[in-house]
């Protein structure tokens, strides 16, 4: 076992790992941060997306030891300092951007990464960027609306279908 230290959501943390320990397992089992979900475990679904050094990545397809020392942000780090929901999270709640909620952590992390790169995306850009995040409730329309609303754009013109 090898002790791996990272900065997760602004705090220096460490946990024991094997070579094969995935970043998703390190977060969930090593640190108890179970907000990061593992849907498919094959890097298709995007439920496990977290930010590593500011970039969205699929934590089920990275070894924990390969990102030792990195700055990691998970869904647990998306709320405001006072515990209220962050902008993207609040938009998902306001616009019903979740149904069962399983994909939501990955959707929020990918959406936040998109808005960091592209603060005012078009609807097409949002859909394209979320290509690697699958919602099996098929609630994509409201997810896209939520992301556009989180970017401060008027979503009244977008049809509800």
């Amino acid at each position: 076992m090898t002790k791996v230290t990272m900065v997760v959501n602004g705090k220096s943390v460490s946990a024991e790992t094997e070579g094969r320990t995935l970043l998703s397992g390190y977060l969930r089992e090593g640190l108890g941060l179970t907000g990061t979900h593992v849907g498919c475990d094959t890097s298709q679904c995007g439920a496990c997306v977290v930010h590593v050094n500011g970039k969205a990545v699929k934590s089920c397809t990275i070894f924990a030891q390969d990102v030792a020392g990195a700055e990691v942000r998970t869904i647990e780090g998306m709320a405001n300092a006072d515990g209220s929901l962050g902008v993207v999270q609040q938009a998902f709640q306001d616009h019903h951007g979740l149904q069962c909620g399983f994909c939501t952590p990955g959707m929020v992390m990918s959406s936040a990464a998109l808005l960091a790169e592209n603060p005012k995306p078009t609807e097409a850009e949002v859909r394209h960027y979320l290509e690697g995040n699958i919602c099996r409730c098929t609630g994509y329309h409201n997810i896209v609306k939520a992301v556009l609303a989180a970017s401060g754009q008027d979503i009244a013109a977008i049809p509800a279908e």
């Binding site: 890097s43 995007g46 997306v49 590593v52 970039k55 969205a56 990545v57 699929k58 397809t61 990275i62 990918s110 990464a113 998109l114 960027y129 290509e131 690697g132 995040n133």
Partner: peptide, 9 residues
């Protein structure tokens, strides 16, 4: 290639 998260890695 792939999707944005795959392209970052």
């Amino acid at each position: 290639i792939g999707d944005p998260a795959v392209r970052n890695r």
